[in-house]
């Protein structure tokens, strides 16, 4: 299966602030599916998951640095192919 179809995933802690983060991820990644496990939320999507700073800030109503994603993430599957000031991309490369 090629890289565009294989599942990537991000697990985040279940929390009030992360609820907003998950909303932003859902909005920017229509193919994402969500699974609730005790204490955490598992996001999965074929090919890639993108997190955009602007989408998160819009919903949070205040500034948010992409680095703050380190406080939310529990685990992931895939490769972090981009992490800059504006976005984080987790995807398979090959």
């Amino acid at each position: 299966m090629n890289a565009a179809h294989r599942q990537v995933s991000i697990d985040v802690q279940e929390s009030e602030e992360n609820r907003v983060l998950i909303e932003a991820i859902e909005a920017d990644n229509p193919a994402v599916t969500i699974r609730h496990l005790p204490g955490l939320i598992k996001l999965q999507a074929p090919g890639q998951i993108v997190i955009n700073r602007e989408s998160v800030e819009e919903r949070l109503g205040h500034e948010w640095e992409t680095g703050e994603f380190q406080l939310a993430i529990v685990s992931y599957t895939g490769n972090i192919s981009e992490w800059d000031d504006d976005q984080i991309i987790v995807k398979w490369e090959h």
């Binding site: 890289a3 294989r6 599942q7 990537v8 995933s9 599957t77 895939g78 490769n79 090959h94």
Partner: peptide, 14 residues
């Protein structure tokens, strides 16, 4: 099986 054999190893096959 799903995440590592299905996701990672095809990537490392490269």
């Amino acid at each position: 099986e799903d995440q590592m054999l299905g996701g990672l190893f095809p990537d490392l096959d490269f």
